[in-house]
């Protein structure tokens, strides 16, 4: 598994979010097969990431240890312990994209934004990640920004795309 990067951002969860979280956990607990993983998925939908504060609540409510929750949270790549940037850039490093040069696209993105894989800029605006196949292999190489897909890219296209979001 890849390195675990712990966040340095202070937790800013609201009372409303916590209410949602507890309601969700109550529902999850009452099901036939309560699942820590499902709880984490729903918690991430509420907070957009999984700070240790949220994991602690999950552990208490589900009656399991924090280690167990942390273990699940760090096992799956979709779970993020770091808040993602306002604009989340992700380059596909799946096979179809890789053989068509997505590695170079990724390097270019990192150097353009000055960020590495899994990092978020200090102002919280941009984040970079490498993803697995997003299922648009016909458009390889592919990059996504908050779900918008850019296909058939070369490294040369990257600065323009980044500039678009810098202006936004």
């Amino acid at each position: 598994m890849s390195k675990i990067k712990l966040t340095t951002v202070t937790f800013k969860g609201t009372a409303e979010q916590e209410k949602q979280l507890r309601a969700m956990l109550n529902e999850e607990k009452s099901g036939a097969h309560p699942s820590v993983m499902a709880a984490l998925q729903k918690a991430q939908a509420i907070y957009s990431y999984l700070p240790i504060e949220v994991q602690t609540i999950i552990a208490e409510e589900m009656g399991v240890s924090l280690e167990e929750v942390f273990g699940v949270a760090t096992f799956y790549s979709q779970f993020t312990l770091n808040p993602k940037g306002e604009y989340a850039f992700a380059v596909c490093l799946g096979t179809a994209c890789y053989v068509k040069g997505s590695g170079e696209v990724f390097d270019k993105l990192c150097s353009t934004l000055g960020l590495g894989d899994g990092e978020t800029s200090a102002d919280g605006k941009y984040s970079v990640s490498a993803t697995r196949c997003v299922g648009c292999c016909g458009l390889a190489p592919v990059m996504t920004v908050n779900g918008d897909v850019y296909g058939k890219l070369t490294a040369k296209d990257v600065p323009d795309i980044v500039a678009k979001y810098k202006q936004a």
Binding site: H33, S35, V36, M37, L40, Q41, F75, Q78
Partner: peptide
């Protein structure tokens, strides 16, 4: 939630159960 090994049958079942 994004783990290749979960395609393997026994790992998939452990994951459906909510664990690593």
């Amino acid at each position: 939630s994004g783990a290749f090994v979960c395609g393997e049958e026994t790992a998939l079942m452990t994951s459906v159960e909510g664990h690593r």
